[in-house]
Design a protein around this nucleic acid. Structure first.
Lengths: 292, 292
DNA sequence: GCAGATATCTGACTTATGTCAGCTATCTTC
DNA sequence: GAAGATAGCTGACATAAGTCAGATATCTGC
């Protein structure tokens, strides 16, 4: 069984490296070496700081310098000293550079679309890819404080609501839970965090504050494909850190018996059950935790 | 939805290329450039013919020549003119080469094992990897005529029986279906085919002959992860070709109503239903097809 | 303002990889 | 056995990628 498993993983590696050789070569086909294309891509993704690019792509200082010069020579980027530290340099796309970047994006998109079109069960394929990507990329999952009214936040909330609808016998209607107040999820009252894996949101948590010394944890969500990787713990830790930094000493949350893994996790991490503290129709379990 | 799908595929590509950069570098760490290691690997996998290696790895004739020379210099391989065409050369591993090849294999295995160990749901991860690998590698699925008593054949049969057990209400007992007669699955009576995706068996079919002008199709199996890729058609085509080359003009098969996709496929590809022609307890549908 | 740290750049070098034309030995066909 | 095809080898060259030791400008802490 184990040796069969290893054979399967190795087959996967072969299949994927062969294919992603082709995927990477979508960066080619525009008459530019891979290294140069990768840097252009990094700048296009908003990585302007030279040091940041170097770090992200793992390039030598001298090598990156030459690549930047080459992109400048092509008229695709301009570099200038950073405003707050003249030793540092920042790179920005020129108009031609933005066009070229977009051309690479379009190529990548077309490539991805092609894989989808050729598969009989695209949804199953996507789910499998998500699972694999989360597993392989678990060390690269990062949790960022985000705008609770942003596009990614809405993406997370919709998946969270969909999950609740599946779990609850009676379904779930986001409207009944009351309208959200984004200010309560933003500093100085509260905070909002999204967990990203290579740019895809795969989890979130709200710290909903009222300007008092207690706050609520809401909408703790982890994507199916990322379950079991300890992401819920990390999100909760981020929320608790934020709470402490806002002078909040007590957290509360409500939940439902149809979410037993969550309840088990709360009990294991210092939460204790308390009486109902709101009249929300969905929750039937209420927890509290003292911080600090 | 579509643009979300594309984002997910691209995230997958990023995650996997980053990780498989690490995977490929397991080929490194032994003080040998990737190209050289790949050739050593190809020879270790039984690719002795120089032209075959060149084709498989997509290398330039001159480049491969130099790499072979370098491996010879290290004492890992020997090359000699081919017995039946002295222009061609064949490469073989020396003892030191076999050891070095094994060292690479062990590294790859350890790397794969490591991925498994770190995941909370290894079986789900493997299933997802299989699905992705079959999808990406569908152009590289090849069907080979194999020994029906070999290790891979037994692997396929076990998965086939497991599938039937799941499908049939009353389960499935391979013993009741009668003992296999390997000679009937080998030329000149019959034939046996396995579909391989990067070395992993993902489908099979038996052409079971009796030295007469009709034969039976048995154990047509396609792995879950490879459904929908047209593999059953390709396996059947291989079996039909083999039948024609053996002078067989009529094929028969039996199946069960719990395998509706298979029955639908038979009806669409020239098979017509006939009365029961054996007393096997499991089948309840019987088909025939005229070839040529 | 000075010492030491930091960020980037330049030049000189190496290695890996790929390309191509021409060479030699061998095979196939007539 | 001669003509042309084929397989692999060699030499000459090109490019991509990476390494490393200074050089230069700037920042930070004292």
């Amino acid at each position: 069984m184990t040796s069969d498993s290893i054979a399967r993983i190795r087959r996967f590696n072969r299949a994927v490296t062969t294919e992603t050789g082709a995927l990477d070569s979508s960066f080619l086909g525009r008459g530019r070496p891979l290294g140069v294309a990768r840097v252009l891509n990094a700048v296009g993704h908003g990585m302007t700081d030279v040091a940041e690019i170097r770090d992200y792509l793992g390039l030598d200082s001298g090598l990156l310098s030459r690549i930047l010069r080459s992109l400048e020579g092509e008229g695709l980027i301009t570099t200038a000293p950073s405003a707050d530290d003249a030793r540092r340099r920042v790179a920005t796309l020129t108009e031609a550079g933005a066009q070229e970047y977009q051309a690479y994006e379009d190529l990548s998109d077309a490539q991805a679309q092609n894989i989808l079109n050729r598969h009989p069960k695209p949804q199953a394929l996507l789910a499998a890819m998500d699972l694999v990507a989360s597993a392989l990329g678990r060390d690269r999952i990062d949790i960022r404080e985000c705008d609770p009214a942003g596009e990614d936040a809405i993406y997370c909330f919709n998946l969270y609501f969909a999950e609740l609808s599946r779990r609850f016998e009676e379904g779930y209607d986001a409207v009944k839970a009351g309208p959200p107040d984004a200010d309560q999820m933003r500093r100085p009252k509260g905070a909002f965090f999204i967990a990203y894996s290579d740019g895809l949101p795969i989890g979130c948590v709200i710290l909903k504050g009222y300007g008092r010394d207690w706050a609520e944890i809401k909408r703790l969500w982890v994507a199916d494909s990322a379950r079991g990787l300890g992401l819920a713990h990390r999100l909760m830790a981020a929320a608790e850190d934020a709470a402490l930094s806002l002078g909040i000493t007590t957290l509360r949350l409500d939940t439902n018996h149809r979410l037993p893994e969550a309840i088990a996790m709360y009990r294991k991490t210092g939460w204790y059950e308390i009486p109902r503290f709101n009249d929300d129709p969905y929750p039937d379990h209420f927890f509290e935790k003292k911080l600090g």
